[in-house]
Amino acid sequence: MSDITWEEPFCGEGNNCFRLGTDAEGNAYIAVAGQEHAYLTDTREALAALIRDIKAGKADHLL
């Protein structure tokens, strides 16, 4: 497994903090801040698509 480079935490209201990370092999990671050992992983392209869809409001029904 490659080393994961984590970005600074992104925190929403109510201390909901997440971290995004990448590795040298082209994988992307997302985890709850402080729980980086329990992450979800996919390709960078998949993470970019997820972020674009969230920004476009396609996940608003989950809120």
Results as ranks from 00 to 15, higher is better:
L47A: 11
A56I: 03
G21D: 04
N27D: 10
L63H: 13
K58S: 04
F18R: 11
A56D: 03
T22K: 07
E36S: 06
A31R: 01
G34F: 06
F10D: 08
A31L: 01
L50F: 15
F18I: 14
N15S: 10
V32P: 01
A33H: 13
R44M: 14
I4G: 00
N16A: 12
A31E: 02
A49F: 12
C11I: 05
P9N: 00
A49T: 15
K58V: 04
A24F: 11
K55Q: 14
F10Q: 12
G34S: 00
D42S: 13
E7V: 06
L63E: 06
R52E: 13
C17I: 00
D3R: 12
A38E: 05
T41G: 09
T5Y: 11
A28W: 03
A38W: 08
G21P: 04
G21K: 00
N15Q: 10
Q35N: 12
R44N: 12
T5G: 04
A59K: 14
N27P: 00
A31P: 00
T41N: 13
L63Y: 04
C17H: 04
T43D: 07
A46W: 06
V32Q: 11
N27M: 05
P9Y: 03
T5E: 09
Y29I: 12
G26S: 02
C17K: 04
G57N: 01
A56G: 06
C17E: 00
H37G: 08
R19E: 06
D23G: 03
A49V: 12
H37Q: 13
R52L: 08
N27F: 00
N15G: 10
M1F: 01
F18H: 15
D60W: 02
D53W: 08
A28H: 05
E25K: 14
L40I: 12
D3E: 09
N27L: 02
G12L: 06
E13I: 12
T41Y: 10
M1N: 06
C17D: 05
A49W: 10
E25M: 07
D60Y: 06
A48H: 14
E25C: 04
S2I: 02
A24Y: 09
L47T: 10
G14T: 01
E7C: 10
D23M: 05
D53M: 11
A33Y: 12
G57I: 02
I30C: 04
K58Y: 08
E45P: 03
D53L: 09
L63M: 14
W6H: 03
D3I: 12
I51R: 06
W6K: 01
N15M: 10
A38C: 08
R19F: 01
I54H: 11
M1V: 11
Q35A: 06
A59N: 13
L50K: 12
G12A: 08
T5C: 05
T22I: 14
A56Y: 02
D23L: 05
A59Q: 13
F18T: 07
I30K: 09
L63F: 11
L63R: 15
L47M: 15
R44K: 15
N15K: 09
G14V: 03
D3T: 13
H37L: 12
A38L: 13
E36I: 11
T41K: 14
Y39Q: 02
A56E: 01
D53Y: 09
I51N: 05
A38V: 08
Q35T: 04
K55T: 10
D23N: 09
